[in-house]
Computed example of a mutant assay.
Amino acid sequence: MYLKQFNKDSSSILKYMPYVFCFLGFMALNIIASKLMAVNSSAVIEDTIIKLGKNGTLLTLLIPFAFFLLLLFLWWKFIHGYSVKQLTTARTKVDWNRIFFSFSLWFFFNLILLAISYALEPESYQFQFNITAFIPLLIIALIFIPIQTSFEEYFFRGYFMQFMAFISKNRAVALFSTSIIFGLMHFSNPEVSSMGFSIMIFYIGCGLALAIMTLMDDGLELALGFHAANNLFGALFITTESAVFQTDALFVFDGESNIYEIFIQVFIIFPILLYIFSKKYNWANWQQKLFKAI
Rank of each mutant, 00 (worst) to 15 (best):
M1R: 11
L3N: 11
N7K: 14
D9W: 03
D9I: 05
S10I: 13
S11V: 13
S12D: 09
I13N: 02
V20E: 05
F26C: 12
M27T: 10
I31T: 09
I32P: 03
V39G: 01
I45E: 00
E46A: 15
D47W: 08
L52S: 10
K54V: 03
K54L: 07
G56W: 01
L69T: 02
L71Y: 09
H80G: 03
G81I: 07
V84K: 04
K85E: 08
T89H: 02
T89N: 06
K93S: 15
F100K: 14
F101P: 01
F103C: 05
F108I: 12
N110M: 11
Y118F: 15
E123K: 15
S124D: 14
Q126W: 08
I131Y: 09
L137D: 03
L138M: 12
A141G: 13
L142F: 13
F144P: 00
T149Q: 11
S150V: 02
E152G: 09
E152L: 08
Y154G: 01
Y159M: 00
F163I: 02
V173F: 10
V173K: 05
L175V: 06
F176C: 13
I181T: 12
F182Q: 00
F182K: 01
S193R: 10
G196H: 07
I199M: 10
Y203D: 01
A209H: 01
M213N: 07
M213T: 06
M216N: 04
D217S: 10
D218A: 11
L220R: 01
E221Y: 03
L222P: 00
H227F: 03
A228S: 13
L232T: 02
A235M: 06
T247G: 06
F253A: 01
D254C: 06
S257L: 14
F263A: 11
I268D: 08
F270Y: 15
L273V: 09
L274G: 08
I276R: 08
K279L: 11
K280E: 07
N282P: 00
W283T: 05
W286G: 07
L290W: 06
L290M: 12
F291S: 12
K292W: 09
A293E: 14
I294P: 00
